[in-house]
Amino acid sequence: MEYWSEIVGQPEAVRALDDAAALDVTPSHAWLITGPPGSGRSNLAFRFAAALISRGQDREAVYKQVRARTHPDLGVLTTQKLLIDIKAARDIVTTAHYSPAEGRYRVIVIEDADRMPERTSNVLLKALEEPPERTIWILCAPSEADLLPTIRSRARSLRLVTPSAADVARLLHERDGIDAGAAERAARLAQSHIGMARRLASDPDSLARRDRTISIALGVQTLGDGMRAAASLVKVAEADAAAITESLDAREREDALRSLGLPPGAAIPPQMRSQIRALEEDQKRRSTRSLRDGIDRILTDLLSLFRDVLLTALRADPELINRENEAAIAELADRWGPERSLVVVSAVETARERLGRGITPALVLEALFATQSTAAALAPAELSLGGNR
């Protein structure tokens, strides 16, 4: 099935969606696609959306429009904020009642459906209870537990798995033309997260920032080291977020000016300033979210490092994620032992949970490295008596 060739490591899901999108089948009116970050939830959702809209031989042409978010029969609900607000949900529900303009169905994709608070979810629930005849909803979330039971019960669920690093590397090599060795390293370091693997393989700056993250963490021994490491990694995350958003912000501003009939660099008439201000506010929210996402990526990288240390300390003969740092990992495992290593792994997991609750990223990292430096100084007996409280 060449149309689905970009979808990695999800053969059962692809078969189910391809069958559901067949011309002689009436598909379920709502779908819930769940899977871990990097499993390809959004890519699969938009491929499925194009297949549902398509009338047969035009799948690829429809997908190009769907990917660009320009197809008239596609609606997308997403957010640059931490939560999807109720007004955005009401607006998209209103469009659900429009008849398809060109395709077989009108399809509405909700990315990050787990970001809907209960009030917002209830707006969607009403639309799912009384679905328009030719509208199909596709919701994406990390797990079914992230949505209200009443919404889960009204959607057909499709669970994705984490693709293997070998599958991700093969995709990068065959589709993007990336050297096989570089593709293998990127897929391994990204822990099979497809989007991150592509960035690490194609952007030397992204790979250098990850290498710096690991180097900084390996250098923490004292509390002072930890506080300096926290400050440095916030700067790493800020640089990563800026790399993602700056070119996108400039392109969006240029497009907005063009749509208003203004050449690049022209003065903005007073009556048009509110539209540009709204764009700038959206971009500021995206920048904030990108920074938090960058901190979470750093924490994911640190978790991979300290799990490597823990497994090495346990003499588990692990296949290291951070193979390039094998000597430093072995030295740290000998110095910490399993008890200290487990304390630090738990501290990273706690840091990710705190970040998800909206705690300031700098404070999250400072608390993590304070725990790391303290754990490194304590004896195993002290740890068991509460050193990780």
Results as ranks from 00 to 15, higher is better:
265 G>D: 10
314 L>P: 04
87 K>S: 15
101 A>K: 13
182 A>E: 14
55 R>E: 14
17 L>A: 03
336 W>Y: 10
15 R>C: 06
355 L>D: 01
364 V>L: 07
291 L>H: 08
329 I>S: 02
264 P>I: 11
294 G>Y: 00
57 Q>P: 12
146 D>G: 09
232 S>L: 12
148 L>W: 00
287 S>H: 13
47 R>E: 02
330 A>L: 09
315 R>N: 15
132 P>C: 08
44 L>Q: 05
30 A>T: 00
268 I>S: 00
286 R>M: 10
356 G>N: 11
28 S>T: 14
322 N>H: 09
315 R>Q: 15
386 G>V: 11
249 D>Y: 12
217 A>I: 01
269 P>N: 08
122 N>M: 07
302 L>N: 06
226 G>Y: 01
66 V>L: 10
252 E>Y: 11
338 P>C: 09
40 G>P: 03
85 D>P: 07
184 E>H: 08
312 T>N: 05
349 E>N: 13
239 A>C: 12
91 D>N: 13
293 D>P: 02
349 E>C: 11
160 L>R: 02
379 A>K: 15
22 A>I: 10
27 P>V: 03
82 L>M: 14
106 R>L: 08
312 T>K: 04
66 V>C: 07
41 R>Q: 09
167 D>R: 07
319 E>M: 13
337 G>W: 07
182 A>R: 15
323 R>H: 11
132 P>L: 04
338 P>S: 10
86 I>R: 09
55 R>C: 11
355 L>I: 07
362 A>Y: 09
315 R>D: 15
170 R>L: 11
34 T>V: 09
156 R>E: 05
105 Y>R: 07
192 S>H: 08
54 S>W: 01
181 G>Y: 03
240 D>Y: 13
252 E>F: 11
139 L>R: 06
116 M>K: 03
208 A>D: 12
143 S>G: 12
8 V>L: 02
211 D>F: 06
305 L>Y: 02
197 A>N: 06
18 D>Q: 12
160 L>H: 06
190 A>G: 05
101 A>P: 08
316 A>V: 14
200 L>Y: 05
22 A>D: 13
294 G>V: 06
350 T>E: 15
273 R>C: 05
107 V>G: 00
31 W>R: 01
349 E>T: 11
266 A>P: 10
374 T>V: 13
205 D>L: 14
52 L>A: 02
295 I>Q: 00
112 D>F: 04
313 A>V: 00
137 W>G: 02
